[in-house]
Design a binder for these strands. Structure first.
Lengths: 229, 229
DNA sequence: ATATTTTAGCGTAAAAAAGACATTTTGTGT
DNA sequence: ACACAAAATGTCTTTTTTACGCTAAAATAT
């Protein structure tokens, strides 16, 4: 960074971040309630203007942090939405991102402010009316997440460090919105060499304890080359 | 479109379009030579500002048309590049697209103008020094094109309406930059039910004539759901 | 006309991956 | 000790992918 920027807004470009988590056995997305028009009182995905001197990634990370206090998370650029009519008042182009996080990691670091009156998790499959084109953005995020899931086990980001295979499968089922076969699921993961089998078990409540696993550093799938490293 | 826009530039957002074709048995990309600083005299991918009242897609289509006179082509949004330092003078965010076209369809409709002094096809695997981050953009386009190719036969856009299986295979090999097995390639396509077998043959020059095929309206792959319709 | 050259066109077998499917194990709570 | 609930496990079938070499057809050269 050798150039100096003035923090003057010369364009209206925002970034919006779709943040998925699993909570109460449901796939949820983080929404904020808007304090002002347009769409006053409506829910929206968190977003904000990209500063003149920051990368788009940095802006998305910043917004993620502002809303959830979470850092160091996998954030992927999704798509840039630029219909001139998407914002009722002016031309705003938004570069959308999506992220998957463990809801435990999060303290919704929110103090009501000028822009937002509430922050809340909402079930993805049962969303309220949303501001702007945010419904479309969430739907597309979900589609992309499902596609990613075929190739790389990004679901691990939804789970605690140590998890059971059943929990892993549940997260897949929630994202894909369909049941998977238990034996095939386990077989696939155990033979993929990306899990570390721990000598620990859930001592949870009742029932038979389950073995815990953790993700070995995610390694790349030699065949397809699709995992990230 | 019920809202009126002033054509005033309030932001610096551009779109750049990576246009691939096959020509002289090589995969090529369309580049323009810049008339002015920054990067005066350097090659760049064609691009331009997004107008205040047009969608990003429309801007990309417009630029494609301005440079190649081609319309009705598959154009896909690639990624938005927004490093504050990518443009040496000011903050310019660019939303990149890529397209595949048949070079025969194209009359490079170019009259030297204020911005561009030349328009030319360049071999993808042997590019000159490029302006801005355009090398990165082309590389990413290529990566994405290869990924797409796994699921949907977008290569058909590089071919004339009637083509031989050998030509189709060549286009795959050029994009993937590797040799493919002839029999497996043919088998895969013939059993995919996306080709229409014509009763016509190349009467070209020498050698045994080859059967011509055309793409049936691209239908979706029922299994993977990945083809576009 | 015959031989030569060049590309088109074809099929099978082995290996790997994906999908279907039901019973036994193990700890907890009563 | 028994009932309960979730965990764990293996085989067979189908589909997909990969590897691999010879004959057919036309054009050209002799």
């Amino acid at each position: 960074m050798s150039r100096a920027f003035k923090e003057t807004k010369t364009h209206e470009v925002t970034t919006d971040v779709v943040i998925f988590t699993i909570k109460d056995d449901k796939l949820k997305v983080l929404l904020v309630k808007r304090a002002h028009e347009p769409f006053k009182g409506k829910w929206a995905i968190p977003g904000g203007f990209i500063r003149i001197s920051e990368t788009i990634d940095a802006a998305a990370i910043r917004i993620l942090k502002e809303k959830t206090n979470v850092q160091n998370i996998y954030l992927e650029q999704l798509y840039t939405f630029g219909d001139p009519l998407r914002h009722p008042d002016s031309r705003v182009i938004t570069c959308a991102y999506f992220a998957l996080i463990r809801s435990d990691d999060i303290v919704l670091s929110f103090e009501p402010n000028q822009e937002i009156t509430e922050v809340q998790w909402h079930p993805v499959y049962n969303l309220p009316k949303l501001a702007f084109d945010h419904k479309e953005i969430i739907e597309y995020s979900l589609k992309r997440t499902r596609e990613r899931l075929e190739f790389c086990p990004i679901a691990f980001q939804l789970l605690p460090e140590k998890f059971t295979l059943t929990e892993l499968q549940k997260s897949y089922e929630l994202i894909l919105a369909k049941k998977l076969d238990k034996r095939n699921f386990r077989k696939k993961f155990l033979s993929a060499n990306i899990l570390k089998e721990l000598n620990e078990f859930t001592k949870s409540g009742s029932k038979r304890p389950a073995r815990l696993y953790s993700f070995d550093k995610i390694t790349l799938d030699s065949k397809r080359g699709h995992f990230f490293s």
